[in-house]
Write a protein that binds this DNA or RNA. Sequence first.
DNA 1: GTCTATACGAAGATAGAC
DNA 2: GTCTATCTTCGTATAGAC
Lengths: 190, 190
Amino acid sequence: MSAAQTRQHIVEAADRLFYERGFEATSFADIAVEVKLSRGNFYYHFKTKDEILGAVISVRLEKTREMLNVWAAEGREPGERIRSFIQMLIMNRAKIMLYGCPVGTLCSELAKLDHVAKDDAGKLFTLFRDWLASQFSALGRKKDADNLAMHILMRSQGVASLATVFRDEAFIRREVDDMTAWLEAQRPAN
Amino acid sequence: MSAAQTRQHIVEAADRLFYERGFEATSFADIAVEVKLSRGNFYYHFKTKDEILGAVISVRLEKTREMLNVWAAEGREPGERIRSFIQMLIMNRAKIMLYGCPVGTLCSELAKLDHVAKDDAGKLFTLFRDWLASQFSALGRKKDADNLAMHILMRSQGVASLATVFRDEAFIRREVDDMTAWLEAQRPAN
DNA sequence: GTCTATACGAAGATAGAC
DNA sequence: GTCTATCTTCGTATAGAC
């Protein structure tokens, strides 16, 4: 196994465990077991836990950029692209009901830990925010595009949060419909 | 110092630290330092960390019930009472921007830990949910009162989440105004 | 590049003196 | 009811053999 491959496996396992169990609650041993590596070898690839976190955030940023590019390419108009964002709540509903939003819960945990990487994790939100704002601009809402982006981000976070507490899929679907209706109402009058 | 007093001090300190640092990240030693107790003595009052968590949730449930009773007594009509809930975001904005919503972040952490007390923590949300639903019923929206309650709970969670990430007080105020306007629009036509 | 062995400190928890 | 001392386990991290 090449070092690059092993490293990638470590980051993938860490990414999943940080999401499902939380950053603090995930130990080196947990990740090592997952990747079928000895703890000793583990340190060949990553010196500290913060280093793994940095790599995980880095990978998440890259995957998010790719996803936003796909949505931009596939959507024929801004409204359709924003709906791709909204639909994430449906697509990932099973995991969201168990572990919440991967971005929101990580940022929340790092904020409490006052962790050095908390601002880096926040960049994940900034990616969505800027992309959504540019879609609202294209929709003809240039002046308040950022406010609208923050509003829809806010809703997705709120839905994820309550979906985890109440394990209620009908609630998710209801709020997704409501967000979609809200989105339609944001199109400027011709 | 009586045992009851000491116990209360422990729970108060734990409550604050669990909120500010998270449950996992808070150690017995952290709480003991805060209360100026030796770790040994600490175990006279609480045998396990989960026991402290149980006491903290218990106290929070009681304080929440009291707060809701005050809002119900002070508000002259349901709309005013619901606005008391919305205004929490403004009242607690400084702490929310640092640590998020105390209820939402605790539930999120316990969900990831798959902690035995996760459902008890969820009861905090249920208190707000039921209270809000009864206010929407009184407002004349009996049929969809629970959906409206969940919607406004969702918004408050979303606002708290993004407020922590972006440390943006203007965003909080904007969304509070938007929630208040939304609330006015929910009054059934006469 | 992977392993075993091990050091070291932090955290949860207990025993027993005062 | 509070203390010190101690035990154990776990988590981070290192050294060095293969």
